[in-house]
Amino acid sequence: MSEPSMGMAGRVNDWGLRWREARWLQQPALLVGGGLLLAMVLASLLAKQISPYDPIAQNLSNTLQPPSPVHWFGTDNFGRDIFTRVLHAVQLDLQIGVLSVLFPMVVGLFLGSLAGYLGGWVETVVMRVVDVFTAFPFLVMVIAIIAILGPGLTSMYVALTLAGWSAYARIARGEILVIKKAEYVQAARALGFSNLRIMFRHILPNIVTPAIIFAMSDIVLVILSTTSLSFLGLGVQPPTPEWGSMIAEGRPFIMTAWWLVTLPGMAIVLVGLGLSLLGDGLADVLRTEE
């Protein structure tokens, strides 16, 4: 079945696709950022080939060694090779960062567009709840939810979703209010399509772009704040290597062994840099498309 409105949206998308292929290669930021992240993931996949050490096994006779050709980043207070632990943590930390943005984005977009599209009391209720969540101190919420659900990654995702969805809901609602009045949506309505169908096929694709632009800047902040959570002792289970908890565990040694704190943080900076560049590039590509 061919629908007029579908055709319009489809055409936009076709254009977009062709444009994207061309523009992606013209964005140095995108390439550098993507390359940086890719290189880190590759390094972590090849961790066992790159470094001969075990990330978890202790060697209590070789503790707190400064960086050297044998241990590039030195060893920690359990005699574990810090460089190896940093490498092994790449995948976990990236996963935490990406999922911690993805979940709130999905929930926020859904509720926000529902509010914007349906209007009326649904909108009022959702937007009041958004206001409450925006003004609620992030940390109280996260610590409390982790305490209620028990520790672990799942509760961390739930907590970060509850803490982060409201911003996306705002964006979605704002965009929807504009799109709702657009011609093709009015046409689809006139043709008697169901609300759900209009929302999913005609409206959502159009609000994803601004959401992604926001998400790319958000993801850096979220990665940084998830590592802060393990700095406060609320993250992953030891002895799993994870950058935030490595820094937290190294803190008692800052006077005597700086490398426990400084070097694992470099990995976070690299990821943050990669993501920032990737986000800037992506935002440029998506903006020019519009």
């Binding site: 096994a57 202790q58 209590l60 359990f78 610590i143 982790i146 305490a147 028990g150 520790p151 672990g152 002792g233 609320l234 289970q237 030891p238 002895p239």
Partner: peptide
């Protein structure tokens, strides 16, 4: 806890460490 986990693994007691608030 991390050291205990290591030592108890020697007699096949597999310890998972869970930090809670």
């Amino acid at each position: 806890a991390v050291i205990l986990k290591d030592q108890l693994a020697q007699i096949n007691v597999d310890v998972t460490i869970t930090p809670v608030e």
